[in-house]
Structure formats: structure tokens, C-alpha cells
Design a protein around this nucleic acid. Structure first.
Lengths: 275, 275
DNA sequence: CCAATAGTGTCTGTGAGACAGTATAAG
DNA sequence: CTTATACTGTCTCACAGACACTATTGG
């Protein structure tokens, strides 16, 4: 089944009837925070959001990157269990923050047959990743730029490869605050995954202010500067120190540990405080 | 297929293989606002949230009430189009506010076979309902009471029949702000619809403060008192007049119409002002 | 000392909460 | 005149935004 020379040939030989008429998959947006160490010894390492992608070695979209995902085992598992299973397979992580994002169901979103995909967002702390993942998987740093005219440019960078795509946000008919997304530029990502990614990033951005989800991406001990950087990178804007500290004051607790050796004043390490 | 005497007999004779292995449905939470006229001529009519339910005349759950919904036509339509089609069939309404809510996929949620259901919330203005709907459909007024211990009691009333159920909200493992819902009392509603209903009501409650969705349930002209009542019934609490008027000031515009004949001072009619 | 971040004190303006007061129709 | 709602004025308190200042390390 993997010997075809082109996507066209593959599709010509693909028989939808050998499967059920309708299938479901899950796609998982595995998000984490990465550090980019700076040349200047004084500067702190720069935080970025990063996302886990997998290189496809099967048709369709052979050779393109995509979100980790897979088919639902109809007899045995729920969609969330399916996502957990795939997450475990790719990252060897379990007990992870996992949240249903959206169900994508355009009729032609998968060229093989009708596939409806329910996407999930997983937030992980990279430091807990002991065994490395799947050979074909890789972490990409995310850069998101919101232009005028409701165009969003996203760049993903894993150090070797740059993936860029652009999404257009169009106001839904007779609304003032709801958009649908359409892909306006995309070369390297499979399926409708550009839209899934933007949806997930916006979900996290919205939730960061009224939930405690950030701490799923933080190590146990962190400085307030680090935490603030994560907020800034998710929200896409700078925050003022005193205001930030006021906001998160009751979510964290001081420990007696310090982070030193950074070329400037040491910082107290904090820990997430559950309510 | 409809001649069975009991649910057990029906299920015994039901052959899942005559269908595909996995099916998808949509369930639609059609929400609107109703008026309950008061005996006292001075008092304004009391607003309530109301929801459209359909009485099932097929197995499974024959005789119980459920959300309007139906199977996805895999070849022809998206889930949203499917929801629109059903909405049109039940209410004869189109161009309606429709928003994807959540995908419910418990393995045994449908006793026939594996059915995954993507639910939608529709907000409608009842006044636009010209032709009456399906014989088996009926509007139910909603009363929601949040008890201690994260128990939620919901009562639905269509004037003839009272439907009550209770849902328990349990904190998800290692979170402080995410719950899953389980049905703790339910006699009259089919499937997992109690959970769908509560999810939808919470979604609307959350969105009312940062979107303009309310106006989808309002007639073209309304008084600020009426609008405030709708907010109050959705949020489940009283609001202070001056604060409310400040908040919605830039979302509405005064017209030169008045509402009179109410046994007290007349009220200016407003209209939704798009930004 | 310098560069860079850590961490705090405090002013100011905005805006929500609260309450009280005035306005005006039907009966 | 009464009742019920419509609508407005204004005080207060909390808090986000803003800025300035002090503290502390490695080199």
C-alpha cells in the first residue's frame, strides 16, 4: 500500500469501500514552551511556544508535516482515550492536560474518504519528556504575527526546517465577533492542520487569563520572570512587571530556592499553588 | 422496525451491521426567550430561557424527550449543514445563530451502535417563528438551580409536562477549574442530553459577557428592561440598573419608538447597534 | 563599575458596585 | 394618589496601567 509513486496514483488505487463509509480521527495540538539560549551571557534565555509535528511517511500528504493523530478505534475507545493513546505513543507521556478543541468536518478535508476529526489541545512540560519520541516527530518553535486585514502569518521552526502558512479570518455573516478561518498560504502542512493550529493557539490565549492552564507547561519550580515570559509569548504582548505580579500572586507560592548564575540578580523560585 | 413492544426487544432485533460501524449525529440546543405574563396588570412579563425539545416516537428512548437532531449524511453535508437542515425541518427557520458546542462520544451513549454526536447551540428569536413546528416538538421554560456540592438541578416546563434532572459536576483530576458532568437524576430525557443541555447553557452564560450573542434572541425593538431581564435569566442573578446600562450602552441605539400601556412609565425601545 | 534582570512603592484614572433620587404611565 | 417600572446622578472602592526607584549578581 505504500509503493505508489505519486499522490494521484495512490488515490486512484484507494478503495474507500474497503473501510467504513465514515471514519473519525483525532488530531492533537501538543504545545509546550521552549528556551532559546542567548549569545549574551547576561541575557535570559528567550521563551517560545512550541508545537509537536510529525512527518508523514504515508500517502496522502506523504512528506508533509502534520499534527500527531490517528483513527478512532470504534469498538474500544473514546476520542479522548484515542488522543491519550496517540500522545503516549508519540511522547511517552501520560496524565497530561488534554482538552477537546473543535470538530473539523469539511467533506473533502481528507482525500481518501469522509473523515471527521475531533482535535484536542495537550499542554505539556517538555522537561518531563524523558525518552525521546518517534523518529519522525519534531518540536517547532511558533511565531505568530497578526497582520491588518485579519491575516495571520504563522512560522514554525525546528532548527532545520521552516514551515510558514497564512490564514485569513473572515467575519461570519451577521456577526461582529465570530470568524471562520481559511488557509490562504500553505505548502508544508497536511490536511486542514493550519486551521487547527490557529484555533488551538487562540483557545489557549483566551483561556490563559481566567484559568490556570499555563502551569501545565511549567516545570515544578520557576521564576516569575520565566512565568511572565510564557504569558507574554502566549498573549503576544509585553506585560508590566508589577501588574503581572499582582495578577498571579495568589496562584503561586514562594519557595526557599533561588535561581542563580545568570549574570544578574538571582531570582526566587516559585511553585504553582492550587486553590 | 417500529413494531417492537419494548426497548429490550427492539435492541435484541437491532442489527448494527445493517449500518456502517460508526455513525455521527448532530444534536441542537435551540434556545430562545419566552415571556410569562403576570396576573398583576402593573408587573412586566417575566422572561425565561426556553429550549426546544422533541418527543421521540421511535426506539430507542421511545416516548422520551430529546434535543432535535439526526444522522449526518456522510456524502453530502457538513455537521453544521446537517444541523441547519434539521433546524429548518423543525422550526422552519434559517439564517440562525449556530455555534458548535462539543462532541460527545461515550462508547455506549447510543444503545444501537457507536454514535458520535457533535452538538450545536442555536439562538433564535421566537417571534420570528411563523409557521409552527413539528407536531412532536415543544418549547420548555428552563429553571436552573446550582446547589452546593456542585449539583445542578434543571427543570424544564412546557405548561403540560415537567422534566427534571440533576447533574453532578466533578473536578477533573489535577485541575482547579475544569469539570466533567455526570447525570445523577434523569427520567424523561433521552441519551446524554442532560449533559448537552447543561454544557450549552454554561457556554452561553460564559459568552454573554464578551460577545453580542444575546441579540440573536431579541426581537428587533426591545426595552433595556427586557434586555436586562434576559441577561439576568442567563446569568442567574440580578443586575444593578446603572451598571447594566453602562455595559450595554455602546451595543444598542435608541429609537424614537416607545413601549406604552404597561401600567407604569413607558420605556424607550432600543435596537442592536453593530460595531 | 556596567549590564541586565529582580523586585517593590506609589500615583492616577477607569470603571464596577451601590444607593438614592427623580420621572411617568395606568388605574 | 398608588404602584411599578424607567432612568439618572454620584460616591466609593478596587484595581489595572504606568513609572520610578532600589537590589543584586557575574564579569
Amino acid at each position: 500500500m505504500e509503493e505508489y509513486k505519486s499522490e494521484e496514483e495512490f488515490l486512484k488505487n484507494y478503495d474507500p469501500k474497503q473501510y467504513e463509509q465514515l471514519s473519525m480521527t483525532t488530531d492533537i495540538l501538543v504545545l509546550s514552551v521552549s528556551d532559546q539560549t542567548q549569545e549574551n551571557y547576561r541575557k535570559t534565555s528567550k521563551k517560545m511556544m512550541s508545537i509537536l509535528l510529525v512527518k508523514r511517511n504515508n500517502y496522502p500528504f506523504k512528506g508533509k508535516w502534520c499534527l500527531p493523530g490517528g483513527f478512532l478505534d470504534v469498538k474500544k475507545e473514546t476520542l479522548e482515550q484515542c488522543a491519550m493513546r496517540i500522545l503516549k505513543k508519540e511522547t511517552n507521556l501520560s496524565h497530561i492536560y488534554l482538552e477537546q478543541l473543535y470538530t473539523f468536518d469539511e467533506i473533502k478535508r481528507d482525500p481518501r474518504m469522509r473523515v471527521v476529526s475531533t482535535s484536542y489541545v495537550a499542554l505539556v512540560d517538555k522537561n518531563k519528556l524523558t525518552e525521546m519520541i518517534n523518529q519522525d516527530a519534531s518540536w517547532f518553535d511558533i511565531t505568530l504575527i497578526e497582520e491588518k486585514d485579519n491575516l495571520v502569518d504563522i512560522t514554525l521552526d525546528n532548527g532545520e526546517e521552516l514551515i510558514t502558512f497564512q490564514i485569513k479570518k473572515t467575519l461570519k455573516e451577521s456577526t461582529t465577533d465570530r470568524y471562520y478561518f481559511s488557509i490562504s498560504k500553505n505548502k508544508s502542512l497536511a490536511f486542514d492542520h493550519p486551521i487547527v493550529i490557529l484555533s488551538g493557539l487562540e483557545r489557549i490565549r483566551n483561556k490563559i487569563n481566567y484559568t490556570d492552564i499555563v502551569f501545565n507547561m511549567m516545570p515544578e519550580y520557576f521564576t516569575l520572570g520565566e512565568l511572565q515570559q510564557v504569558y507574554e509569548v502566549i498573549l503576544g504582548k509585553k506585560l508590566l512587571d508589577p501588574a503581572f505580579r499582582r495578577i498571579i500572586a495568589d496562584k503561586v507560592e514562594k519557595t526557599n530556592k533561588m535561581k542563580t548564575g545568570e549574570g544578574h540578580r538571582p531570582s526566587v523560585l516559585f511553585r504553582y499553588k492550587r486553590k
